[in-house]
């Protein structure tokens, strides 16, 4: 599907809309690191900018796509996977990447995530998880950890959180992985693997919201937050027992699922061709 690894050195300016830079994200926001890793992975996979389509939803993560010098699509809240599904079915020649956030993907668009994973259409979904709705004023999201302060949980969050990777894997995704922004080169490698995977690939990126979430919860400035990721991550595939509650502060990272499943686009086209043949007869 994709060309061999490109050997030219990676220059991020080749992939950015330079007239939109510097971007609007807050100082120290992990989304910028994730964006660099995505672009470096696109470069590594040798994907032509004209053949790349990035679909984004609403939120801080939704703004990420706009800085990429490729075909980008800023869609409605929670629906980037739905738009991407239509796009990929209409234009199977494009590499479709969805950049979404924890609220966009798990709350507003939670239904779209499970069905996109179930269908296994060849889309790479990058979920930037900063554990909060940053753009709308810091409300609690489905991944806000217990006891964390947000504008809707002024006395500390009490809800259990979603393990997005487990959710995607259970819904049938062919590729599921997680990485922290602190390990940006490893994140790039993970995204490159996801891009090469033929089928629905889900990558959860643990990102930092420094200005709203970090400040409110006294997690330190941007360097302290990114350094603390090192203590939080567990660089091996998921091994904890199923009865263990998901703990955002003891994250396993790496690739959890990589399996060959029938890709939806091919099946859909074969099905359509068969139906067309029947009606012509």
């Amino acid at each position: 599907m994709l060309e061999a690894t490109r050997t030219l050195p990676f220059d991020i300016k080749d992939y950015l809309r330079l007239d939109t830079m510097p971007h609007f994200m807050c100082p120290g926001c992990g989304h910028g690191i994730a964006l660099r890793a995505l672009l470096a992975a696109v470069h590594d996979c040798g994907i032509d900018k004209d053949r790349l389509a990035v679909v984004c939803g609403i939120g801080c993560s939704g703004r990420v796509g706009g800085y990429i010098d490729a075909n980008t699509f800023h869609t409605t809240h929670g629906r980037p996977l739905a738009f991407a599904t239509g796009l990929k079915l209409a234009r199977p020649d494009l590499t479709v990447v969805v950049v979404t956030g924890d609220g966009d993907c798990l709350a507003i668009g939670g239904n779209h995530l499970i069905h996109a994973a179930r269908r296994n259409l060849d889309i790479t979904c990058l979920m930037l998880n900063n554990e909060v709705y940053g753009m709308t004023g810091g409300q609690a999201s489905p991944t806000t950890a217990a006891t964390r302060l947000t504008s809707t949980t002024p006395s500390g969050a009490i809800e259990p959180v979603f393990d997005a990777c487990a959710l995607a894997a259970a819904a049938g995704a062919g590729f599921v992985g997680r990485e922290v922004t602190r390990q940006a080169p490893a994140l790039k490698t993970l995204i490159a693997r996801a891009l090469r995977h033929p089928g629905f690939a889900f990558v959860e990126v643990m990102s930092d919201c420094t200005e709203i979430y970090g400040r409110k919860n006294d997690l330190g400035e941007a360097p302290e937050m990114i350094l603390s990721q090192k203590a939080d991550m567990r660089p091996e595939a998921r091994r904890d027992a199923p009865d263990q509650p998901f703990r955002p502060n003891a994250l396993p990272t790496g690739v959890f699922v990589e399996r060959d499943l029938p890709e939806y686009g091919e099946r859909w086209r074969a099905h359509a061709a068969a139906l067309r043949g029947e009606t012509e007869r």
Binding site: P22, G30, G32, R36, A184
Partner: peptide, 14 residues
């Protein structure tokens, strides 16, 4: 370079 969220750092090593 990897961790700059604003792509402001450029490292050359060649």
């Amino acid at each position: 370079e990897w961790l700059c969220p604003d792509f402001a750092v450029t490292v050359r090593n060649e």
